[in-house]
């Protein structure tokens, strides 16, 4: 009797493990997904700035041209632990210089490393999932032109149970998708702005509140959230709170000046250092999109 029970328990555990393993398996692109796509360096540079890579992957105190050396090291405190941006410079050993464009596409769109390991969503693949493959191919080519750094990546400080990377496969099933948050009839400018804000710019990663599992609460899209550092809040930038004109928003993304001639602060300074490199048309598109978002009070 005991023996039979034990056998049942063992069998159930086996099935459970198999289901867990299947549910949490890394999803990857087909080997031929990028066939026919050719990189455009100038476009890749714009994707680099729109995507804000340097905002997190530049060294903690880097300024000016040093921000193009993506040696990593910045710390990102969160309720789940402290994440550290890795070295994604062009160094083949310590950075990602050895990656193919497909590797980068899998990382950005599926949050999966070339070895098939899940990344923590501190890396905003939940936004990059909506990026166009052609843009990723161009970005891959542009990243290869940036300086290499041999700075070793620092480990994340994440405790049990969040350090079980395999379970992120389940997290992705809950929270990773490629549907646009703002749907409906958009102008061409608003559509471009949506791509820049929701996909590459990953605005929602900080400006949208998260649930207890760290998933974005889409009903409160861009409605403001506690700063992950635990100090202060990331502001509500929906029309329910932000009353700036489109020109004001575009100016802020260019110079960092608010209409009252205060300036951006905190991590947003690093964001503006990137958006300053976008074309005036793209900044205007982001502004048009921001005005189109559902108001949150």
């Amino acid at each position: 009797m005991v023996k039979a029970l034990f056998r049942w328990a063992a069998a159930l555990a086996l099935v459970g493990t198999a289901v867990f393993w299947w549910v949490t398996r890394p999803v990857m692109l087909d080997a031929g997904a990028l066939a026919g796509l050719t990189p455009d360096l100038a476009a890749g540079e714009q994707v680099f700035y729109a995507g804000g890579c340097a905002a997190c992957h530049a060294a903690p105190d880097a300024s000016g041209d040093a921000r193009l050396t993506l040696s990593g090291g910045q710390a990102f405190p969160s309720p789940f632990g402290t994440f550290r941006a890795p070295n994604i410079s062009s160094d083949p050993d310590h950075g990602i210089g050895g990656w193919s464009a497909l590797d980068l596409a899998n990382a950005m769109k599926n949050g999966v490393s070339p070895e098939g390991q899940h990344y923590f969503p501190a890396f905003p693949y939940t936004s990059y999932a909506k990026a166009q493959l052609s843009d990723i191919v161009s970005l891959h080519a542009f990243l290869a032109t940036l300086p290499a750094s041999t700075e070793p990546s620092k480990p994340h400080e994440v405790g049990f149970p969040f350090n079980i990377r395999r379970s992120l496969g389940g997290w992705k099933r809950l929270f990773l998708g490629d549907a646009w948050v703002v749907a409906g009839d958009l102008t061409a400018q608003e559509t471009r702005g949506r791509y820049l804000a929701e996909a590459l710019g990953h605005c929602g990663e900080c400006h949208t509140p998260r649930n207890v599992l760290g998933g974005l609460q889409f009903s409160q899209w861009l409605g403001g959230a506690p700063d992950p550092s635990g100090k202060g809040r990331v502001p509500n930038i929906t029309p329910g709170k932000l009353l700036w004109s489109e020109a004001d928003i575009a100016e802020y993304l260019k110079s960092g000046f608010t209409p009252e001639f205060d300036t951006a602060g905190g991590h947003m300074v690093a964001v503006v250092e990137n958006t300053a490199h976008l074309t005036p048309e793209d900044r205007a598109a982001i502004a048009a999109y921001v005005k189109r978002v559902m108001p949150v009070q």
Binding site: S63, G224, D227, S229, K231, G232, R233, V234, P235, N236, K241, S255, G256, F257, T263, A264, G265, G266, H267, M268, V269, A270, V272
Partner: peptide, 21 residues
């Protein structure tokens, strides 16, 4: 000249000012 002034303001606000809405 105004861009560099804004950048200088922002350099302090980036590190020494708490985010707030």
């Amino acid at each position: 000249a105004i861009g560099p002034v804004g950048a200088a303001c922002g350099a302090c606000h980036k590190v020494y000012r708490k985010p707030d809405s």
